[in-house]
Design a protein around this nucleic acid. Structure first.
Length: 848
RNA sequence: GCCGGAGUGGCGAAAUUGGUAUACGCACCAGACUCAAAAUCUGGCGUCCGUCAAGGACAUGUCGGUUCGAGUCCGACCUCCGGCACCA
């Protein structure tokens, strides 16, 4: 090859080699230990962006590392190819979503290959192809069979821009996850999956993965599930046989309840108001609240508003009658849609009570009296309420609570829940914030819901042997809220599997997050025609050892796939609870927005995007990847820098030239029996082994940036070695070969093409990937053996240094320090109080 | 508002987990090569005092504490960034 580093030549040569040799194809019958490295599969938008490059570079580095260590690595890729952008393209530009998607995949596959990511392309999958979505439908039917899929009419999140329903996860924060449009509420009949059945496991099993997942993701998962312990309590409606069930976590405050408050959507409301003079007012009020919510008004920012219904409810503990109100701050979706209002001990109730002059009665006293002074707490009785500024929400001692006075909150909670159960007006209960997953989408580009509706037999699941329910070639892409499939008569009109009579298909498609909930199991057995995957094959690869992707999916995809895995476990497809052992959430790639000092995520609209193809053309795939991995820790934001990438090329070029200079001498090794290394050669060998140790351990925590820094340090040492290949001794050649070969192997995860080339230049045929381990192993003796320069401090101030052997004992080190002339001068005339010896670190002498 | 995370050179960042703070890279400065520039190579690069030097003082958001010793541990505060946001 060339004396100079020409990335494009080297890269195309090795990409072709890998392709032809099938270097990265994984075999499941391999006896070696497996390693499943997975990156979140891309949506085929048409173009790779730097976020993809970063994601795949991280995964590829780890895959190479494991491969070179002798693992049987599965590193697959596929396409999350159902979803909105394809349909938007169809609406706006009249292209067929299928053609658009296939073209994009074609182009992006080329980009990924030019990046040289070591994928097993033989396992490539795409969600929009019938051989894949057939299994989405299969899973749907399984869920239907197990009672986990159901249809109901409810208020759902609606994205007015994309004209479709969104799940709660996809509309977190009140905006559409894809386009950022504020969501509205709509009443629709929808398919739901009972993720709530798994709520408890989704929280409990966090302990199985907490060692391998970032804390912030686990926290968000746990917050999203929102487990909360409390009790249901029934308040009987006065002069009626009706009961209002409330949920509370603070049953110990129930003697302070001064109202019961219902959500505007509460089903009991209409019945309670039957014949009431206030019915019209209340109806209008409830209607107003519903309208506000439908408009996507931010809950929580509004002032509390309510109306007294005139109905009274009876506190089952105190027997007291309290008014029933309707208010905007009570959510139908959580708990029972009704609360007991305890203004003295709940901030929201307090705010509400102040506005409507409801009595505020203290029933919990702080235990700590100093705390009482610092924080004004509610005083007893209604008359003092004007002075109360805050509710007291902590646990404390019960007061004004009948015979329960004097008990501590936690004790009272347990006793009172038991009491309620005993007397049949309540029980301890756990509620969850998470809602069932709405999966119907009023869109074309997704997997059709495999059910039909027959006038005679009602809703009938499509039999398994009739799957897949094929998506038609095309439809009328109007972009309105109507499902496009409804306008395709050949699709809609079918026959009932039960009675053969005429029937209509469900015209909604499934959420694309269904596709991505189980895709990495399909990679294990991607061409299976009888099952989503063969359990015995999948069990050889799964669970995923390392998953890498953005934290934008911390709630959505990651909670769905955990749910899906638990379901697959329950139907016997997998035999574990958690699909992913370790998760890395990479940071964003940002660039300066032109004309400002702001660094923002690269985007077309801001004009600060960087095209990976241009970078590859200008600097090579290796340098692009090396820079991306070196510039910042993987979890951090990565600020794009063109001069940074130039630095990466510079480094690769220097390594390339160095190998070129030495390759002739190094590729013809001669053996010498007894080596006598020069001090310079010893220094180089020490650095080589220290670097091996450092890089190997850095990989365990995916500290790729410091690995690269270590490789640069090793290279700098090689430069400092400054030997002439023509005149070098056998020892020097040995040290140099050891250093350069180690460097080249360790460079492979970061810059695989040039590493392969240099490995070849060093006289090795057949490429770096082999069935046996190739990653260098550090000699612990060599990595450690060095003379140590130990600082000597007197009273914490650096006074001298002493050079000692690496295995010097603590006593000898102490003696050497005290014998040092400059130290002697310092301690002369003072009493030595203490000598602190930190082996291999320092000596500190404390004098008076 | 609540819950997390983070503050280290001009910049991205290191620091073996309490032991020589600023590794590695970028930018910058100087020198070599060149008619010149680029590229490349060599050296320098926290701040201040010191003629170069030797050396010294101060530096990890602020203020205190523990310790022979603190970027790291503890307390209070400030700032920034994320997440959730009436969840009863």
């Amino acid at each position: 090859m060339d004396e100079k580093y020409f990335p494009e030549q080297i890269e195309s040569k090795w990409q072709q080699h890998w392709n032809e040799a099938g270097t990265f194809e994984a075999k499941s019958d391999d006896a070696r230990e497996k390693f499943y490295c997975l990156e979140m599969l891309p949506y085929p938008s048409g173009f790779l962006h730097m976020g993809h490059v970063r994601n795949y570079s991280i995964g590829d580095a780890l895959s190479w590392f494991k491969r070179l260590q002798g693992f049987n690595v599965l590193h697959p890729i596929g396409w999350d190819s159902f979803g909105q952008p394809a349909e938007q393209a169809a609406i706006k530009r009249g292209v067929n979503p299928r053609d658009w998607t296939e073209d994009n995949i074609e182009h992006m596959r080329g980009q990924l290959k030019r990046l040289g990511i070591s994928y097993d392309w033989s396992r490539e999958i795409a969600a929009h192809r019938p051989d894949y979505y057939k299994w989405d439908q299969w899973f749907f039917l399984k869920m239907l069979e197990k009672g986990l899929a159901y249809k109901k009419n409810s208020q759902v999140n609606w994205c007015p821009k994309e004209e479709t329903v969104l799940s709660n996860e996809q509309s977190s924060g009140g905006i559409c996850w894809r386009c950022g449009t504020p969501v509205e509420k709509r009443d629709l009949e929808q398919w739901f999956l009972r993720i709530t059945n798994y709520a408890e496991q989704l929280v409990d099993d966090i302990k199985q993965i907490e060692a391998g997942w970032p804390d912030k993701v686990l926290k968000r998962q746990s917050d999203w599930v929102g487990r909360s312990e409390g009790a249901y309590i029934d308040f009987a409606v006065k002069d009626s046989d009706k009961k209002i069930r409330v949920f509370t976590t603070r049953i110990d405050t129930i003697y302070g309840a001064t109202a019961v408050v219902l959500s505007a959507e509460h089903p009991l409301l209409a019945q309670l108001l039957e014949g009431s003079a206030l019915k019209q007012d209340i109806d209008a009020f409830a209607q107003k609240l519903r309208t506000q919510r439908a408009a996507g008004r931010e809950v929580g920012e509004e002032e509390k508003e309510g109306l007294n219904t005139g109905v009274l409810a009876i506190n089952p503990f105190s027997g007291e009658s309290v008014p029933v109100w309707v208010a905007n701050y009570v959510l139908m979706e959580y708990g029972t849609g009704a609360v007991m209002s305890v203004p003295a001990h709940d901030e929201r109730d307090f705010e509400f009570a102040q506005k409507y002059s409801l009595p505020i009665r203290q029933v919990i006293a702080p235990i700590d009296h100093q705390h009482t002074d610092a924080e004004p707490s509610p005083t007893t009785g209604g008359d003092a309420s004007a002075e109360i500024k805050h509710s007291f929400i902590d646990y404390g001692v019960l007061v004004n609570s009948g015979e329960r006075g004097g008990k501590l909150s936690p004790v009272a909670i347990a006793e009172m829940s038991a009491y309620a159960k005993e007397h049949g007006f309540g029980e301890a209960a756990v509620t969850y914030r998470i809602r069932d997953w709405g999966v119907s989408r009023q869109r074309f580009w997704g997997a059709p819901v495999p059910v039909v509706y027959c006038d005679k037999d009602g809703m009938v699941p499509v039999p398994y042997d009739q799957l897949p329910v094929m998506l038609p070639q095309t439809a009328d892409f109007t972009g309105t809220g109507e499902s496009p499939l409804a306008g395709v008569p050949e699709f809609v009109n079918t026959s009932c599997p039960e009675c053969r009579g005429p029937a209509r298909r469900d015209t909604d498609t499934m959420d694309t997050f269904v596709d991505s909930s189980w895709y990495f199991f399909r990679y294990c057995d991607p061409r299976n025609e009888g099952m989503p995957f063969d359990s015995s094959i999948a069990s050889k690869w799964t669970p995923v050892d390392q998953y890498i992707g953005g934290d934008s999916h911390a709630v959505m995809h990651l909670i769905y796939t955990r749910f899906w895995t638990k379901f697959m476990r329950d139907i016997g497809l997998v035999n574990f609870d958690e699909p992913v052992k370790r998760l890395l959430t990479q940071g964003m790639v940002t660039n300066r927005v032109e004309g400002t000092d702001e660094w923002k995520a690269m985007s077309k609209s801001l004009g600060n995007g960087v095209d990976p193809d241009e970078m590859i053309a200008a600097f090579g795939a290796d340098a692009t990847r090396l820079f991306v991995l070196f510039a910042a820790p993987a979890e951090n934001e990565l600020r794009w820098s063109e001069s940074g990438i130039e630095g990466a090329v510079r480094f690769l070029r220097r390594v390339y030239t160095m190998v070129w200079k030495w390759q002739e001498r190094l590729s013809n090794p001669t053996q010498t029996s007894a080596m006598e290394f020069s001090p310079e050669a010893r220094t180089l060998r020490r650095k080589t082994h220290q670097t091996i140790a450092k890089v190997t351990s850095d990989f365990a925590g995916l500290h790729l940036n410091t690995s690269v820094a270590a490789l640069m340090e090793l290279f700098n040492q090689i430069v400092d070695f400054n030997a002439d290949p023509a005149k070098a001794s056998e020892e020097d050649v040995f040290a140099m070969r050891e250093a350069l070969e180690s460097l080249v192997i360790m460079l492979a995860p970061f810059a695989p093409h040039v590493a392969e080339e240099l490995w070849e230049n060093l006289g090795h045929a057949g490429g770096l990937v082999s069935a046996s381990p190739r990653w260098p192993v550090a000699d612990p003796e060599l990595a450690r053996r060095e003379e140590l320069e130990i600082p000597i401090q007197v009273n914490g101030k650096l006074r001298s240094r002493v050079i000692v052997a690496p295995d010097v004992s603590e006593e000898d080190l102490r003696a050497a320090a005290l014998a040092d002339e400059r130290v002697k001068a310092q301690i002369d005339g003072h009493e030595v109080m203490k000598v602190i010896v930190v082996p291999r670190r320092l000596v500190n002498i404390v004098i008076r």
